[in-house]
C-alpha cells in the first residue's frame, strides 16, 4: 500500500460541503503582484515630491532662515520681485528661451519633414546622430567647448551680446523639439496627403492645408519642451555667459553658493509653477492624439 487511503480522505472532504465561501480579497492570488513592489513605489513617489513640497512651503515662510517656520507670508516673493537683478535675469531667461524655442522648433520641424516618411536615404543615420548629439555628449563637455569657441570669437569680433547664449540654447534644444514632431509625423496617415493630391492640391497646398495643421500639435509640443529645456539650463549658460548676463538659473546658482535666503525658494517656486504649467499643456497636447 504505497498510496495512502486517499479514498476515505476524499470521502471525508466530500462529506463536509465546501465552506470557503467568503475569502478575504487580500489573500487572493494575483499574478502580477510582486511582494514589496507597491510599497517601494509609493515610497518613491513620496520621496520624489517631499523635497519639492518642502521647498514650496518654505517659500511662504515669514522667518528669515529656512530652518524655522514663522507664519505664512509672501514677503520673499515681494523681495524677489523688487530685486532688479532677479527681474533682469527672469526677463533674460524668457527672452533667450523664446528665441531658442522658435529657432530650434523651426529647424527641427524641417529636419523632421526631411527625415521621416520618405524611406531610408544615404546619410540619414548621420543626421540622426547629429540631431541627437546634445543628448549624448555630457553637458559639461559641450559647455567647455563653447566657452573656448566663443571666447575666441569674442576676442576676434568684440561682440559680447546675448547672441552666443541664444545660439547655444537653440542648438541643444533641437533634439527636444525634434522628437515629438517626428513622433507626430510618423503616426500621421500618409493617405490623407495622397487624398489631397488626388483632389488637385499642389504639393505646397497639401503641405499648408493638410500636413502642417495635422502636425501642429507635435510642433507645439516640441516648442514647449524646447522652451522648458532652455529655461532650465544651468551649465552651458554658466560657461557661455558674459559678465552681467545672468539668467534665472545662473543667478540662483550664484546665490546657492553663498548664503541662502528664502528668496531662492520663491524664485524656484515661481519657475517650478511655470514649468508645470507648460508641461501640463504638453501632456494634454500629446494625449489628444490617442
Amino acid at each position: 500500500m504505497a498510496v495512502p487511503d486517499a479514498g476515505t480522505a476524499a470521502a471525508d472532504r466530500a462529506g463536509a460541503p465546501a465552506r470557503r465561501v467568503a475569502r478575504r480579497p487580500g489573500r487572493a492570488f494575483s499574478v502580477t503582484r510582486l511582494p514589496g513592489f507597491g510599497l517601494v513605489a509609493v515610497t518613491v513617489f513620496v520621496l520624489l515630491y517631499a523635497p519639492i513640497a518642502t521647498l514650496i512651503v518654505y517659500s511662504f515662510n515669514d522667518a528669515p532662515t529656512i530652518s524655522v517656520w514663522g507664519g505664512f507670508s509672501l514677503r520673499w516673493y515681494a523681495d524677489a520681485w523688487a530685486n532688479q537683478q532677479v527681474k533682469d535675469a527672469a526677463l533674460r531667461s524668457l527672452l533667450i528661451a523664446s528665441f531658442a524655442a522658435a529657432i530650434s522648433t523651426t529647424v527641427a520641424t524641417m529636419a523632421a519633414l526631411g527625415t521621416t516618411r520618405r524611406g531610408r536615404f544615404p546619410g540619414q543615420t548621420f543626421i540622426y546622430v547629429m540631431i541627437n548629439q546634445p543628448l549624448m555628449v555630457p553637458e559639461i563637455v559641450t559647455a567647455v567647448a563653447l566657452l573656448i569657441f566663443f571666447a575666441a570669437i569674442k576676442v576676434a569680433t568684440g561682440y559680447q551680446g546675448l547672441g552666443y547664449l541664444i545660439l547655444a540654447h537653440s542648438a541643444f534644444c533641437v533634439p527636444f523639439a525634434y522628437l515629438p514632431i517626428r513622433a507626430r509625423l510618423e503616426s500621421m496617415d500618409l493617405s490623407l496627403e495622397t487624398a489631397a493630391a488626388d483632389l488637385y492640391a499642389t504639393p505646397w497646398q497639401t503641405f499648408r492645408r493638410v500636413t502642417l495643421p495635422l502636425m501642429a500639435p507635435g510642433i507645439a509640443a516640441g516648442a514647449m519642451l524646447a522652451f522648458v529645456i532652455s529655461l532650465d539650463d544651468v551649465i552651458i549658460t554658466e560657461f557661455v555667459k558674459s559678465a552681467g548676463q545672468d539668467t534665472l538659473p545662473t543667478y540662483m546658482l550664484g546665490k546657492l553658493r553663498r548664503a541662502i535666503t528664502p528668496e531662492v525658494n520663491a524664485i524656484s517656486t515661481a519657475l517650478l509653477g511655470l514649468t508645470v504649467l507648460l508641461l501640463t499643456a504638453f501632456f494634454l497636447l500629446t494625449r489628444k492624439r490617442g
Binding site: V107, M130, I131, A171
Partner: peptide, 14 residues
C-alpha cells in the same frame, strides 16, 4: 530640409 538643423548643431554644439 535637415541642413539648417545640421548647421545650427555644428556651430552651436558639435
Amino acid at each position: 530640409l535637415s541642413l539648417p538643423a545640421l548647421v545650427l548643431l555644428i556651430v552651436g554644439a558639435s
